[in-house]
Structures are given as C-alpha cells and as structure tokens.
C-alpha cells in the first residue's frame, strides 16, 4: 500500500480503481463456478479439489495479467509482474479471488460431483 505522502504526490482515481476491481471480481466469481464444474466432473475429493481450485485460480490471475495488464503495463515502463498500473495491492490481485470465489466453487463442485457419480 502506498503511503500518505505518495498518495498526495500521485493521486489515485477512485472510479478507475473500482472499475478494475469489479472487472477482476466478475471474472473470478465466474471462473470459480467453472472450476467447480470441472472438479465435480473429475470426481475430486477433499484436499485435491481445493488444490485444483487454488492452482486454477492462480492460472486465472496469470492469464488475466497476460491479457489485460501486461501489454500496457510493460510498455509504460513497469517491471514484469508489476500490477501497480491498474491495482493498488499486488497480493490482492494475485490471491484476492481465492476467498471470494470459494463459495461458488464448492457449490458447483458438490452439485456436479453428485450429478456425475450418482
């Protein structure tokens, strides 16, 4: 997080911040349900299902970075894997979807597990 002084020197646009966060969150909640479908079809149980979810969420973040953040961010002089052009916190960007998408993941995971192996 930037300090108060840095915020005064280079202010932040709240609307853009919210727009970016909402875009990322929409994607993550959609894909979390999708991963639940896949995990249910594969018939994963207990830890392997959660591991599947974590791995695919990180892949989602990486793909989103590659498709949306990287082209303009790197050309504007930021280092690779630096998301500070569009997001305030790096940890929030890479792992923020893990908790918010978990409920949807478990919902569709259990649903499709029951549908397939019933």
């Amino acid at each position: 997080m930037p300090s108060e002084r840095e915020l005064q020197i280079s202010p932040i646009v709240q609307e853009s911040l919210m727009h970016n966060a909402r875009t990322l969150q929409n994607l993550q909640s959609l894909t979390a349900s999708l991963f639940g479908v896949s995990a249910g079809i594969l018939g994963l149980e207990s830890y392997s299902g959660f591991l599947f979810y974590i791995v695919f969420s990180l892949i989602t973040s990486a793909l989103f970075y590659a498709a949306r953040v990287a082209p303009t961010s790197i050309s504007s002089g930021k280092a690779p894997l630096d998301t500070s052009r569009y997001f305030v916190g790096a940890v929030e960007f890479w792992t923020g979807g893990l908790m918010s998408g978990l409920a949807g993941f478990i919902l569709t995971w259990t649903l499709f597990y029951g549908l397939v192996s019933a």
């Binding site: 853009s16 727009h19 970016n20 875009t23 929409n26 994607l27 953040v69």
Partner: peptide
C-alpha cells in the same frame, strides 16, 4: 473482460 483503466491520476 473489459479493458482496465489506469488508477494513477496523471
């Protein structure tokens, strides 16, 4: 996904 917008004001 929709294109992102830069958050720094400048």
């Amino acid at each position: 996904t929709r294109p992102l917008r830069p958050i720094e004001w400048r």
